[in-house]
Structure formats: structure tokens, C-alpha cells
């Protein structure tokens, strides 16, 4: 297990390096600079700006300087938020995004798995059809439709919950964003669990466990659920990417001060350092979550560790 973990972690560093280098190259080699869209600047001002941000240096120097900064946790100054470091923006936004994201993944797993199990155990009943319809809808509905519609129904018509805002993370303000974010993941988890649980429950070792006279609950939870969760665990890596993408929408719709909104605004303002910093942070988070999912998978299934 340790060897597997080390090998898996070793692939992480080069991948992150590739992300950093690629996004640096795309952004620096692209036509146009960050100051092009403002009013025409006099050449002297322009030269001063370029010098202040180090844009007059050769590309390689800029790259090395950026890497050096990253190693110290410095993502450089934001081009558009004057006098603000990108690292500060990230430090402000990340707790919000992480809270919402983690809550959404937890909610998705804690509701998706039981729904899938119920659907599998009562297959072809009303309950099963209900779960399948729900998961088909959950997968098909985009979050930028679900979010505003939930806000319309629960925030305005029923007036149960606030429509937008953060208020230092008070739970009332979290409900709608978290549900919006969790819905597609929950739907997919329920579908995966249903399929794999049905398959597992047909296998020989389940029959053996029952023949041994084990308690049915033990058969279901210990012998059945553990192998049935494998596809769910391996999906969780991909789910992170999904949740991060969804958080861009959810933070915009519900006005949350998270990093997703900064990324969108950075892209709209052509704030290159901000966009790059966000991409690197999100890339690292995605890789980390994939790593955790893989390790969990290796722990659940001994066969994976030895290839």
C-alpha cells in the first residue's frame, strides 16, 4: 500500500508542473497584454507599467521568476485589483469555496448512496422508478438552470431561504448553493450505486454469505456495500472537477465571495495573474482529490495496489 501511495504521489508533481507551464505559456504568448484594453497609454507610462510588472523581461526570466514566487506561495500582484496580491484574493475566497464544495460532496454521497441502495433492493418498484427519474433529471439539468429556479421557488415564492449572500457562512445561506451543487453529483452517485449494488448482490459470495446464515443486514452492509462502493469512489475524483466547475456558476448565482467568482471576474477583466493563480490552485485541488480517491480505491481493492 505504501509503495502504491508513493508511486501515485510521484506522478502528481510533474502533472502540476505541466499545468503551470502550459497556462503560463498560453497566457504570455497570446496576442495582446493585460493593459491593452484600457485607454491608450503614452509609451512612457506603458513602459513603466511593463517594468513594474516585469513584463519587459525575457519570457524565460519571467517564467523562472513566477516559479520562484510560487515556491514561496506568492502568485504575483493582481493586474486589475490594484494593490492586491493574488494570494490574498485566494486566501479570502478559498474557505468559502471549500466549505460549499465539501458540503456538496458530502451531501451528494450521503444521499446518493442510500438512494442507489434502495433503488437496487426494490428494483422495478415505484421507489426504483422514482430514484431513476430523479437521477436522470439531476444529471440532465444544468446547475445554471437549477440554481436560479431553486432561488425562485424556495427564496421568492415560498420565502423559506435567503436568495443570495454569505453572512459569514450562516447555514441558512448555504442550503440552496449546496443543494444546487450537490444535485448532479448525487444523481450520478445514486445511478452508479444502484447498478453496481445490483450486480454485487447477484454474485456468488453474497449467496455464500447468506448460506452461512449471516444476518441479512450484515450481508448487505459488509459484504454487499463495500465492493459496490468501488465505482462511486473512483467517480469521486471526477466529481471534484465537476463540483469546481459547478461552483463557478453557483457562486455567481448566489453571490458567494468564493474563488470561483474571482476566476470568472479575472477572466472577464483579463486579469492574467489572477486567472493563472486560480487555475493552479484548482488544478492542485483536483489532482489532490484524484489522489485521495485513488488511494481510497487502492485501500478498498487490494488488486489495484499491485499492478
Amino acid at each position: 500500500m505504501l509503495g502504491f501511495a508513493v508511486r501515485r504521489i510521484a506522478t502528481l508533481v510533474p502533472t502540476l508542473f505541466v499545468i503551470i507551464t502550459l497556462s503560463f505559456l498560453i497566457i504570455r504568448l497570446a496576442p495582446g497584454g493585460p493593459f491593452d484594453e484600457e485607454q491608450a497609454l503614452s509609451p512612457a507610462v506603458r513602459a513603466n507599467l511593463d517594468a513594474a510588472y516585469g513584463l519587459d523581461q525575457p519570457l524565460l526570466t519571467q517564467y523562472l521568476r513566477y516559479l520562484g514566487g510560487l515556491a514561496r506561495g506568492d502568485f504575483g500582484p493582481s493586474f486589475k485589483f490594484r494593490d492586491t496580491a493574488v494570494a490574498d484574493l485566494i486566501a479570502q475566497g478559498l474557505p468559502v469555496s471549500l466549505t460549499v464544495g465539501l458540503a456538496a460532496v458530502l451531501l451528494a454521497v450521503l444521499t446518493g448512496v442510500p438512494l442507489g441502495v434502495i433503488a437496487a433492493l426494490r428494483s422495478n418498484t415505484t421507489a426504483d422508478h422514482a430514484v431513476r427519474t430523479l437521477s436522470a433529471l439531476g444529471v440532465a439539468l444544468p446547475s445554471f438552470v437549477v440554481g436560479p429556479v431553486l432561488a425562485l421557488v424556495f427564496g421568492l415564492y415560498l420565502d423559506w431561504l435567503p436568495v443570495a449572500g454569505w453572512e459569514a457562512g450562516r447555514p441558512r445561506y448555504l442550503v440552496l448553493p449546496v443543494i444546487t451543487l450537490a444535485l448532479p453529483v448525487m444523481a450520478y452517485v445514486a445511478r452508479l450505486t444502484r447498478t453496481s449494488f445490483m450486480e454485487v448482490m447477484r454474485s456468488n459470495f453474497i449467496r455464500t454469505a447468506r448460506a452461512k446464515g449471516l444476518d441479512e443486514w450484515r450481508v448487505l452492509l459488509h459484504h454487499g456495500l463495500r465492493p459496490a462502493l468501488m465505482p462511486v469512489v473512483s467517480y469521486l475524483g471526477a466529481a471534484t472537477a465537476f463540483v469546481i466547475t459547478g461552483s463557478l456558476v453557483v457562486e455567481t448565482v448566489f453571490g458567494l465571495p468564493g474563488t470561483g467568482r474571482y476566476l470568472v471576474q479575472g477572466a472577464l477583466n483579463r486579469d492574467y495573474t489572477l486567472v493563472m493563480g486560480m487555475i493552479i490552485v484548482y488544478g492542485a485541488i483536483t489532482l489532490l482529490c484524484n489522489l485521495i480517491a485513488d488511494l481510497l480505491y487502492g485501500w478498498l481493492d487490494p488488486r489495484v495496489r499491485h499492478d
Binding site: T15, V18, P31, A241, L263, A267
Partner: peptide, 19 residues
Amino acid sequence: DVLYSLPYLFIVIILTTVF
């Protein structure tokens, strides 16, 4: 595989930022 594990829409966002 590597590209698969990234939130690919981010690459689109970079591209829409620079172009």
C-alpha cells in the same frame, strides 16, 4: 488521462481570457 483529470472548462476559460 492527464487532461481528463483536469476541469477542462478551465482551459476554455483561459482561451476565452486571452482571445
